[in-house]
């Protein structure tokens, strides 16, 4: 790790000014659970850190209006345990409480978590040139393609990269049509969460559409009755404290005993948080039984492509999503 300067900003404006003044090598740091980790691995090499974890009002959680609003610096643990979120939006609460450990959830922010980088072992390892990685060193190649790809993506991969988007919270937000509030030099803009993530295509090192000096100042989720019929089901290599092999975020707007609008997204299987529109379309107007749930889930993986060791994720993904659909559906009865 190179020497670096550290400054704690009080407001977003102050942070942006400090960022611009610091020039090249400036990075925002919030909880630091991902950035500091990657700095220790030599993958991130900032020269100037502007701490945005304590921006005035940025830890706000507001569930009063027609939407849920989470300040970018709200802690994962606090959002997970918010009374309204944990009662009416279980898919959101569970996506947070099943991530990492309570220690890390006490540090990490819901804004920073949107920008968590992949756990691809070829990316995280070998910063010294052991393993080629197009994400870490553009143009160097991808060792995961044709390599040990058990944990790699089956959806959204390109010829340059098949690294999985690692988050749980972004998957739940994707299902729930969240919007992201970004503040930059020229003011504030709001984008749908789906526009935050870039598929790897030929430029896997470009992961997010957020501008360099922009800050995630808030996340908004439209209120919906579907939140009460929701679940985040996460399957991993151990019972806790692990990233997803497969996860499914499901929230169902029911019309009697039939599905109205289904909200479905997948994690652990794709290069970006993956909205499963095909499954949603399949479910519309149907009653939920095991067979239908599995058919919808299978539709979600229609475009999946397996590598050498990750074909099981297609079958496991479908079964996990089917289980999640049944669980969410059972809540409406």
């Amino acid at each position: 790790m190179k020497p670096l300067s550290y400054v704690r900003a009080g407001t977003a404006r102050e942070a942006i000014d400090a960022f611009v003044a610091a020039g090249d090598g400036a990075r925002y740091i919030a909880g630091g659970t991902n950035l500091y980790d990657l700095m220790k691995l030599g993958i991130e090499r900032p020269a100037h850190l502007i701490d945005i974890a304590d921006l005035e009002g940025a830890d706000r959680i507001d569930t009063d209006g027609d939407r849920l609003f989470f300040g970018g610096a709200a802690l994962m643990a606090n959002v997970a345990e918010d009374p309204v979120v944990s009662r009416d939006y279980l898919v959101l609460a569970e996506s947070l409480s099943k991530a990492a450990s309570q220690q890390l959830r006490n540090m990490a922010t819901v804004g920073g978590n949107l920008l968590q980088r992949t756990r691809c072992p070829y990316f995280r390892n070998g910063v010294n040139g052991t393993y080629p990685c197009n994400k870490r060193e553009p143009g160097s190649g991808c060792a995961a393609l044709g390599g040990l790809d058990r944990s790699q993506a089956v959806l959204g991969a390109s010829e340059a990269c098949n690294a999985v988007s690692p988050g749980d919270w972004p998957v739940a937000l994707m299902a729930m049509d969240a919007t992201i509030e970004l503040q930059g030099r020229d003011g504030t803009r709001v984008i749908p969460i789906s526009e935050l993530y870039r598929p790897p295509s030929q430029t896997p090192h470009l992961e997010f559409t957020i501008g360099r000096e922009e800050i995630v100042t808030g996340i908004a989720v439209p209120k919906t009755a579907a939140g009460r019929n929701s679940v985040y089901l996460k399957v991993r290599d151990r019972e806790s404290y692990a990233f997803a092999l497969v996860s499914a975020a499901v929230a169902l707007e029911m019309d009697g005993d039939r599905v109205g609008q289904a909200h479905v997204a997948l994690g652990g299987v794709a290069t970006v948080p993956w909205r499963a529109r095909a499954a949603e379309a399949f479910l519309r107007g149907r009653t939920l039984d095991r067979e239908g749930a599995l058919a919808a889930a299978t539709a979600a993986f229609a475009d999946a492509r397996a590598g050498r060791h990750n074909a099981f994720k297609i079958e496991l993904g479908a079964r996990t999503l089917a289980d999640a659909l049944i669980t969410a559906g059972s809540k409406s009865q």
């Binding site: 756990r119 072992p121 070829y122 390892n125 393993y131 040990l148 151990r238 019972e239 404290y241």
Partner: peptide, 24 residues
């Protein structure tokens, strides 16, 4: 897990080398 093209242990940390946790 070792990639025979490179040698060494690819999952060389406690997140990827999976040992039992309390919930297991």
């Amino acid at each position: 897990e070792s990639d025979p093209r490179f040698g060494g242990v690819l999952n060389n940390d406690l997140a990827e080398y999976v040992v039992p946790v309390n919930a297991d």
